[in-house]
Design a protein around this nucleic acid. Structure first.
Length: 352
DNA sequence: AATGCACCCAACCGCGCTGGA
DNA sequence: CTCCAGCGCGGTTGGGTGCAT
């Protein structure tokens, strides 16, 4: 069905940035009369703007309850978690960050968070590790740079730059993760990063894929949504819920899906695995056992060489041992050779 | 100082949904 | 049931700004 444009094309309504005078008129009018019909508001308020422009200016900028300024780390985490569940539903995400507008969150996502996730090797759309070849290339280049830096440092008789070993390890790990995912196309491993987002993200933590909450010792059943809204990832939604509760958001998320908010959760938590992941992607055994408390866990402290944590759910030490070997400089060469051999014989056109 | 470039974010555009006639 | 006005939402644009050369 066709619809008339918001403003007559022939009309000479003003566009572009708002002047302080226009702002004042709009604020004055709405504070006295409310906005009522946006379409008729400009005339009533004496503004040469279209109603839509007035609404946008009010909701995104002039509203008195708008919170401006930098996003906190908590805000960022909440945005990421809700985005992993809701996708680009900016208004829904904004509903859980009082004072923030959907436009502001959308901009912040596109300019900051998106890039951050990409740098971490995470696809901001799916919240899963990137498997595109460009990304693999950049990782292999990172490895190359890192090795070069190491060679230069050795040649000069200096120790490598302080960050270099971590970068090397992370690049190796990330690269292998992505290779494994390419090869198996059904799961992946995630180690060597102390970012709470990675650890708590059911898409990124292998334990979640096994239906294990890394922060709890017992398995939990899958979430069965009883509400009207479908969420791609109920585990993350629970996590998002718990974070939301920390911010004292009055609107209960439980109302949305008929579930209950796990009130005592720590900052990073989750309850279940993704139904889709389990249904469509049978999990590989978890490679790393996570300790029960996030606060005590710092993988970087051990230089990515994670000490095996005992867990009743830990399926295998063998694979973990392999990873340790991979991370061991003395033996990594042979493992890389194996991987290279494997990829060179596979049908996938891996580029090096 | 001038220029080019990248980034940020306010504002715009167009589509879909909703509810009333 | 159809039509349509109005609104809200998500994607996109472009001007302003800061930084590098």
């Amino acid at each position: 069905m066709g619809r008339s444009p918001c403003c007559e094309e022939s009309s000479s309504v003003k566009k572009g940035p708002w002047t302080p005078e226009e702002d004042e008129k709009l604020i004055d009018y709405i504070s006295k009369h409310g906005h009522g019909s946006w379409r008729t508001l400009p005339k009533r308020a004496g503004l040469n703007r279209c109603g839509k422009s007035c609404r946008l200016r009010w909701t995104n900028y002039l509203r008195p309850d708008i919170k401006r300024g930098k996003f906190s780390e908590d805000d960022e985490r909440i945005i990421i978690n809700f985005h992993s569940v809701l996708g680009n539903k900016w208004s829904k995400i904004a509903a859980h960050l009082p004072g923030r507008t959907d436009n502001e969150i959308k901009n912040y996502w596109n300019t900051h968070i998106r890039k951050k996730l990409l740098k971490m090797g995470i696809d901001p759309e799916t919240h899963k590790p990137r498997t595109d070849l460009n990304h693999l290339m950049s990782l292999s280049q990172l490895l190359g740079m890192s090795n070069l830096s190491s060679a230069i440092s050795t040649a000069w008789g200096n120790k490598p730059l302080g960050l270099q070993p971590d970068i090397t390890q992370l690049a190796k790990i990330q690269l292998v993760q992505n290779l494994l995912q390419l090869i198996n196309n059904n799961s992946f491993v995630n180690i060597g990063n102390n970012n709470p987002y990675l650890l708590s993200n059911p898409n990124l933590n292998p334990l979640f894929l096994n239906g294990i909450n890394p922060l709890q010792t017992n398995k939990e059943p899958h979430v069965v949504l009883s509400g009207s809204e479908e969420y791609a990832n109920p585990g993350l939604y629970s996590q998002a819920q718990s974070q939301c509760s920390q911010h004292d958001v009055s609107k209960s998320l439980a109302d949305l899906d008929g579930g209950s908010i796990p009130q005592d959760y720590n900052k990073i938590n989750s309850t279940t695995t993704s139904r889709e992941n389990l249904a469509e992607n049978p999990p590989l055994p978890a490679l790393v056992a996570f300790p029960p408390k996030m606060g005590t866990f710092n993988q970087m402290d051990s230089g990515c060489n994670i000490a095996a944590q005992t867990s009743t759910e830990s399926p295998s030490n063998t694979i973990f041992d392999d990873w340790e070997k991979l991370l061991d400089d003395e033996t990594s060469g042979s493992y890389w050779k194996e991987i290279l051999d494997l990829t060179s014989t596979s049908a996938s056109p891996i580029l090096w």
